[in-house]
Amino acid sequence: MPGEQTRRNDPDRRQRIITAALDVIAEHGVANTTHRRIAAAAGVPLGSVTYYFASLESLLTEAFLQLAEESSDAFRTHMARATDREGAREAIIDIIAGSVWAEPRTLLLSYELYAFAARHPAVSAVMQRWMNNSRAALERFFDPLTARALDALVEGIGIHNSIDPNPLDRPAVSEIVGRITDGRAR
């Protein structure tokens, strides 16, 4: 049958499964993510999920690795536009106050990633790589300790803003970034 031949030679199937895994995690959380839910979301037979991934943990690790790479790339892209320290500050403010980090789906997936990484060493390594990439981008303009503080600030404000009834606005974020990068205290 022509339709079956196309499905068997579906070169995008593995990627669809990974993308579907992230969708399922965002909707149901890691604890309620199953092979069946992922297969249904990807529009593939259940056997395809287990064919491409030996375990649910290996699939989740691959999905979280993709999330980390995409987030790192977006962070790096914003930081690469900066040509000086002031431009770097503006990039950080954009990352925090804009849609790079503050997008609800990214935040939800990041919460799940942190919780999963705490109990799974392979994913913990993914998190460490993400942090290292962010810090390396920041260290083009700031000393390592300031870069580390800014990295934590990016994620921390995003997390707080996602649940705070009075989230920090761009001017407040700008003030905080300025205090950290200039040592200003008011």
Rank of each mutant, 00 (worst) to 15 (best):
D182R: 14
G3F: 07
A137Q: 05
A136V: 03
S58E: 15
A152R: 13
I180Q: 01
A118M: 14
A102Y: 07
A97M: 08
D182H: 09
S174N: 06
D182C: 05
F53E: 00
Q66I: 00
H160G: 08
I163D: 01
R89N: 10
I163L: 12
M127R: 04
R119I: 12
A68Y: 03
L107R: 10
R37F: 05
L138F: 15
A26D: 15
P144L: 02
A31W: 11
A39N: 07
L56Q: 15
T77F: 00
M1K: 14
D164T: 05
R76Q: 14
P2F: 14
R135P: 07
P2A: 09
R7G: 06
G156C: 06
F142R: 05
Y111H: 11
S48T: 08
A42V: 02
D94R: 08
L67I: 07
L113D: 03
P11D: 01
A40Q: 12
E57G: 14
S48H: 09
E175D: 09
I176W: 01
P104V: 08
A63T: 03
R135S: 09
H35M: 10
E62F: 00
T83N: 10
R140E: 07
A97Y: 06
D94Y: 05
P171T: 13
F53V: 02
V123E: 09
Y52N: 05
